[in-house]
Design a protein around this nucleic acid. Structure first.
Lengths: 259, 259
DNA sequence: TGGTTGGCTGATTTTCGAATCAACCAGCCG
DNA sequence: CGGCTGGTTGATTCGAAAATCAGCCAACCA
């Protein structure tokens, strides 16, 4: 593995390959899941030789780890910027939701991987995935603590929990799209979702009368026009759920087909 | 997964073994995750021979599937009962939170498996863990739709999304405990968490003044064309930051140690 | 133009664990 | 008692895919 890249200049060119592979990894992971794909799939997607993947990444785990850090660090730094900025809590919360949804808009597949493969990955125990999540939660918990001190937040609200709830809402909101519960192509829907998340979260958390030192616009702003779309996104199969008949005997249950 | 011999009686004795294995599977999955453990681990945990696992379960997938269904079915039926009952929305929401937290109190490890293993769906989509989850969301979405019709719910709230947010909050709230962010042994904390979840969710969703039984809320639609969001999305730049520079250094990587 | 370097290749080796299976044993029936 | 039945065992098999490695070749230098 030595593969010293002591050569500083060639870097760019070299990184290009590396990035290509990383990009391919994100796409493949998003499509088949981390465990459901082989390094060969990633290599093929990237259009490079199998071995090259190992030239740039020590092993499959490191690949996922890198995908994670790459995507997550972006989100975290943006979120931190917002959380530590000055301004009313309400605005911060909305901006955090913005950050999350914007990330999704820009690169839905990357977000999908983060949410599906990493956010809940139990294996994360050993690596810092969970730690990373915990970090964001703590980060925003501080934001809430400060808001509480300044009287913007209801005194009976626990900062840490509030923080967890906010991100829980955001995550689940995104998950709805990721999983296909809602149509991700529907931009309006995305906007509305973002607004509703911040909105419903805030009104349960903010001091009813409005924060002291800040004139808050009368709530609302949501549903600008557009009647709520019929609430039944019919597409997406009903899923056979209970109908699920294990059987498949012959077929090995593992991954059925590859590529 | 009935498909267990047609003989209904012998069931009990035989099931005992089966249950032991199932229980062991839950524990092991909770500890190392589905992919992170081998059948051998489950067998050892259960104190039975390796081969016996295959006597009761067709394969590893079916084992997880069973764990999953077993756990979900309980929660789902309870939740359905609440969702379809009569009464004010507020009460229903609180009871749903109750159900979730009670499940956690009774068997935290099982809940952990459900929560952590939930959204990951094998590409093949053969196992629908998420389907069960989606079902609950749809179920409660119906509850919200009804509440909306009866005027209990703000008209500008999307039922499906509201449903997702509720469970997102619950899930993340529980996750905080699962992950150790909050001390799960602290009963008071659990109670408070449950209350805060329902509370903050409700206050952002319920019609402020309480719900008259049938009055279509006159609440003029939030005027607002769109003034509010002053700062608009800050056009997040490239999602993937470029901050990454990580060197592959000697991150450990694989997980050499197996128990 | 010959030599050296290093990104790159992909067949080969190794690892690893799911799934199988032949044998074992306890109870039961005739 | 002896033979049958079915739960139980764990070493063995076997496929899949992770990781390695012996070189290839293009670019660059002397």
């Amino acid at each position: 593995m030595g593969q010293q890249k002591s050569a500083p200049e060639g870097g760019t060119r070299e990184s290009e390959r590396r990035r290509t592979i990383l990009r391919a990894a994100i796409d493949v992971f998003a499509r088949k899941g981390y465990h459901g794909c082989r390094i060969a799939d990633v290599a093929k997607e990237a259009g490079v030789a199998y071995g090259l993947v190992y030239h740039y990444f020590k092993n499959k785990d490191e690949l996922l780890e890198t995908v994670f850090e790459t995507g997550w660090s972006g989100f975290i730094s943006r979120a931190r910027l917002v959380a530590e900025s000055e301004g009313p809590l309400e605005e911060k919360v909305r901006r955090i939701a913005d950050v999350a949804f914007e990330a999704y808009r820009v690169d839905p597949r990357a977000v999908k991987v983060l949410i599906l493969e990493i956010a809940r990955s139990p294996a994360g125990a050993r690596i810092n995935r969970q730690t990373a999540f915990v970090d964001v939660i703590r980060l925003s918990a501080q934001m809430f603590t400060r808001a509480k001190e300044s009287g913007e937040l209801r005194p009976d609200v626990d900062p840490l929990l509030a923080s967890a709830l906010l991100f829980g809402s955001i995550e689940m909101g995104l998950t709805a799209f990721v999983v296909g519960l809602a149509d991700a192509r529907d931009t309006v829907m995305l906007e509305r979702a973002k607004a509703q998340i911040a909105d419903s979260f805030l009104h349960g958390v903010l001091v009813p009368g409005g924060a002291p030192s800040r004139t808050e616009p009368p709530r609302s702003e949501l549903s600008t026009a557009e009647p709520v779309r019929a609430e039944e996104p019919k597409h997406e199969a009903p899923a056979e759920v209970s109908t699920w008949k294990r059987e498949k005997s012959g077929t090995k249950s593992k991954a059925p087909k590859r590529s």
